[in-house]
């Protein structure tokens, strides 16, 4: 068989530097699609703002003690809930006022972040892993595997998301964060599975996957080296946007009294408590609501920004 290494190099038709001006400008700069997307994101205000908010939220989640000295759970009835917010005292316990049990609303908003962010991130991770796996297998293998897994997915899709989560939660007496995560993930994985399946079916037919098969590549190699990196973009977008949705779902469940329970601090529970006092003390309701909206919005904006950066059609 001929040895490639011994052949004389051919006269180059494309190497002439002037022939490809782009080669001169960006000499030797390897730009991956992710790299390009990053360049795009850095200049996108939506991304900068939402990413900044999310960084702050993550900091609050990890170190709530850095943001407030007050405890969210111990109240002093001296601080009656009619004690109005003192907006000039930024960062002090009385900043957002006190609730009916004399607890600092500001401290509760800070500590409540943890539950929301943990639920959002954990549900998204669980859903992406499980839904992604189901969708990938279903899309790649097709045939009866697809019929089975798609049928399974459709059954879960048929269950109403919030109502289903409520029923699941009823079965648990001890409702910790992880129980809520389970309930939401149990019903939430179908969307990712469907997105993944569609993306895999499209990518599976592309020529480069055919090329890998023609080379004799094994199924795991095709799945993880060729298909997975190319379907990550839509999955990441859907996952980021739904992260915000899971956070609001947790708040809704907690508001209804089916989600988290004391002593865990949660915005949903506070909104629920605040709505009972809405005529006399609006601040108990308003501040957790604002935080919740900002958090959900930040994740949805991030998802949108990532979608625009990754979508080749906008280029």
């Amino acid at each position: 068989m001929p040895d490639l290494t011994k052949t004389a190099p051919v006269p180059d038709e494309t190497k002439a530097p002037v022939a490809d001006p782009s080669a001169v400008v960006k000499a030797d700069k390897a730009r991956s699609l992710w790299g390009d997307a990053w360049q795009d994101l850095r200049r996108n205000w939506y991304f900068v703002i939402s990413a900044g908010l999310i960084v702050i939220l993550l900091l609050i989640t990890a170190f709530p003690g850095l943001f407030t000295s007050a405890s969210p759970t111990t109240g002093d009835l001296v601080n009656h809930f009619l004690g109005k917010p003192e907006l000039s005292k930024i960062g002090s316990p009385e900043w957002f006022g006190y609730d009916g049990q004399g607890r600092s609303v500001y401290a509760r908003v800070i500590y409540g972040t943890r539950a929301s962010v943990i639920v959002g991130v954990a549900v998204t991770l669980a859903v992406t892993l499980f839904g992604g796996l189901i969708g990938m297998l279903s899309g790649y293998f097709g045939g009866w595997i697809d019929a089975l897994l798609s049928g399974f997915t459709n059954i879960f899709l048929g269950l109403p998301f919030l109502l289903g989560a409520m029923v699941v939660l009823q079965a648990f007496t001890d409702r910790s964060i992880w129980v809520v995560v389970f309930a939401l993930a149990f019903l939430g994985w179908t969307q990712i599975a469907r997105v993944m399946r569609g993306a895999v079916i499209t990518i599976k037919q592309s020529d480069f996957v055919q090329a890998a098969r023609a080379l004799g590549a094994s199924t795991p190699r095709i799945l993880f080296r060729h298909i997975l990196p190319n379907v990550m973009a839509p999955v990441i977008v859907v996952a980021t946007i739904s992260l915000g949705v899971y956070i609001s779902a947790e708040a809704t469940l907690s508001y209804l009294g089916l989600g988290l329970a004391s002593p865990t601090v949660s915005w949903g529970m506070d909104i629920s408590g605040g709505s009972a006092q809405i005529r006399v003390a609006q601040h108990i309701l308003i501040y957790p609501s604002i935080m919740l909206s900002i958090t959900v919005l930040a994740f949805i904006m991030l998802g949108e920004a990532v979608r625009n950066a990754l979508d080749p059609k906008t280029r």
Binding site: D207, H226, P229
Partner: peptide, 11 residues
């Protein structure tokens, strides 16, 4: 392959 735009893995 025919289409040099789809026959190479973009990643």
């Amino acid at each position: 392959f025919q289409d040099p735009y789809t026959s190479l893995n973009p990643r």
